[in-house]
Write a protein that binds this DNA or RNA. Structure first.
Length: 554
RNA sequence: GCCAGAGUAGCUCAGUGGUUAGAGCACUCGUUUCAUAAGCGAGAUGCCGUGAGUCCGAUUCUCACCUCUGGCACCA
């Protein structure tokens, strides 16, 4: 049974130019469930991520705030670490960032390797250059009049007036969006990644893949069939990783090439940290390892086309196996938006609410197959009735009853009724059922199975009514509570990947510990004073949050 | 505009080529009191986006249309 597997879990690297919001968490939360589950299974897990710290948006944000890009990146990196690890309890083996020496070295090594193999080549292009800002402008930083419909604020790449794609050069009266100056066309040399070389391989690999979310597979097949084009992987900017070749001091490797390399660089960094420099090879050079990637749907092409292209070009490294790409979480039927500040920010949320409730809500309503909507009302109802009413209450009523009536502990009964064995069998079967669902990335289904056990528990308890039975038959009541208590042990294990703090708290109360993802052994249960697992979400809290949203809307 | 995904009970979401389409929440009624006024049971609720086609039979397959969402290459 314990054939140890090598499980690599790569969670998307959040971009360090602003706080995380619930949409980000919704996409990432599954990675921690996977990591915790596989560790409990006894598999060998490597779970890494980090902050994506380079790129134009960060330097722009830095300019705005009048500080250096590294200050911005470090500020948010620190905040990400705090909120993801301490706040939400993400159990990363390593959460690093793209500013480390190690990362820079790994990226430059890959760059050189691909350059030498001919998968990265140099090409001269003409790009719009703003003489005032002294920088090359991305398409979206140029505005002008649409040559087709004469809409006056068409973007460099597309006209919002008529929806047509535009060649930036055809724009009438183009202007730099930052300063309003007229851009000039200047030649510049850039490095291109030869993604086109992997067109067929990636298509074949995608079509034969199993265990990807449907959105990732469809999107990728469609994307690849449209034809893969080589992409420039360098930029005329100064905030990024230097190109490891002479004569390119004023250019940098661009983030989307560089950041995905973090999956490998972080694996290496972790290996060094624990003093086993070659550990990463057991995951990356082992064809039997299983690689999970967890992210939002906006990140699909980077994980199914760009990163695999780099891996194929490099050679000898494992391609992704499971793509767990979420759809979007929306907020009161609107998209989360940084610029419009339409969001619930993670740091704020964690100040006012319990992280465990967020894990519960987002895992259950996590936009696995289609966009899912977050509303405060819905959140409050789910937490109060399901998490507290069904699950928390079952745990609490049983443990408190044992604590009050059997301080010396309770013994597992020698003889079981059919009702008892049915209940225990249901609990036993949960392990396989929940485990299978987690491995498939079906977190909502998995969590529902866990909760169905708690609901069963409530029914079992009602039907055996130990609070009545104890008056005449102390032993019979003890048997009921021993079985219910045993199921609570099961629940502690079963909930551990989803609700780690809950699991820990239950274990402390029953003086137990979680060792393995398996049906626990039956022993005497001694209970110390049970703590309340969660506090209710009050109407006043919800009203306050709803009001805040209303104000943003105005 | 092109491509993809979604449109299923009041809400959030599952699901299936076939007898009366599901869950949770909300709602109504009943019931229990060990428990954070929590639990349990029962009930009600749907032209399964619109129109057409394939089929003995479609919510499930095909086509068209409508609405929403995302992508459309230097945007992370």
């Amino acid at each position: 049974m314990s054939t140890e597997r090598k499980i690599y879990i790569g969670a998307a690297w959040p971009y360090a130019n602003g706080s995380l919001h619930l949409g980000h968490v919704s996409a990432l939360i599954g990675s921690d469930v996977l990591a915790r589950y596989f560790r409990l299974r006894g598999d060998s897990v490597l779970f890494v991520s980090g902050s994506d710290c380079h790129g134009t948006p960060i330097s722009l944000e830095a300019e705005k705030q009048g500080i250096s890009p590294s200050e911005i990146a470090e500020k948010y990196h620190k905040e990400f670490k705090e909120t993801l690890i301490n706040g939400l309890g993400f159990s990363y083996d390593l959460y690093t960032d793209t500013l480390t020496e190690n990362h820079v070295r790994v990226v430059q090594e890959i760059f050189l390797d691909l350059y030498n193999k001919g998968f990265i080549y140099e090409k001269e292009t003409e790009l719009p250059f703003c003489p005032d800002c002294k920088k090359f402008l991305p398409d979206r930083y140029i505005e002008g009049e649409c040559p087709k419909c004469h809409f006056t604020s068409a973007r460099g790449d597309q006209c919002d007036g008529c929806g047509n794609l535009i060649d930036t050069r055809e724009l009438i009266n183009p202007k730099c969006k930052i300063c309003g100056a007229t851009p000039e066309w200047k030649t510049t040399k850039h490095f291109y990644l030869k993604i086109s070389a992997f067109q067929e391989k990636i298509l074949e690999w995608t079509e034969s893949s199993e265990g990807w979310r449907k959105n990732a597979k469809n999107f990728t097949i469609n994307f690849v069939k449209q034809g893969l084009h080589d992409r420039a992987i360098t930029r005329d900017i100064d905030w990024g990783i230097p190109i490891p070749l002479k004569g390119y001091e004023d250019k940098r490797i661009y983030v989307w090439f560089e950041a995905v390399c973090g999956y490998l660089s972080a694996s290496k960094e972790f290996s060094q940290k624990i003093g086993n420099d070659d550990l990463w090879k057991e995951f990356w050079e082992n064809p039997n390892s299983i690689h999970y990637y967890v992210h939002g749907k906006d990140n699909i092409p980077f994980h199914t086309v760009v990163w695999p292209s780099i891996l194929l070009a490099k050679g000898g490294l494992k391609l992704p196996d499971r793509i767990v790409s979420s759809e979007y979480l929306t907020l009161a039927n609107g998209q989360f938006s940084k610029s419009r500040k339409w969001a619930i920010w993670l740091p704020e949320f964690l100040k006012n609410f319990d992280s465990e409730t967020l894990r519960y809500y987002l895992l259950l309503n996590g936009a696995e197959k289609s966009d899912s909507d977050f509303s405060w009302k819905q959140y409050q109802e789910k937490i109060n009735t399901e998490l507290i009413g069904h699950f928390g209450n079952f745990v609490h009523r049983v443990l408190l009853f044992i604590y009050k009536n059997y301080p010396e502990g309770i013994n597992f009964p020698a003889i079981l009724t059919k009702e008892d064995t049915d209940f225990l069998n249901f609990a036993k079967n949960c392990f396989a059922k929940v485990g299978t669902a987690i491995e498939k990335g079906k977190f909502a289904e998995a969590l529902e199975s866990v909760f169905s056990l708690a609901e069963y528990g409530n029914r079992y308890l009602n039907s055996n009514a130990p609070w009545t039975v104890i008056k005449n038959d102390r032993q019979k009541a003890e048997a009921t509570l021993a079985i219910a208590g045993h199921v609570i042990k099961c629940l502690a294990v079963l909930s551990a990947p989803f609700l780690p703090r809950t699991a820990k708290s239950i274990c402390e109360t029953i003086n137990s510990s979680i060792e393995r993802w398996e049906y626990p052994t039956e022993t005497i249960i001694v209970v110390s004073k049970p703590a309340i697992l969660y506090s209710k979400v009050e109407d006043s809290q919800i009203e306050k949050e709803q009001e805040l949203l209303q104000q943003i809307k105005k």
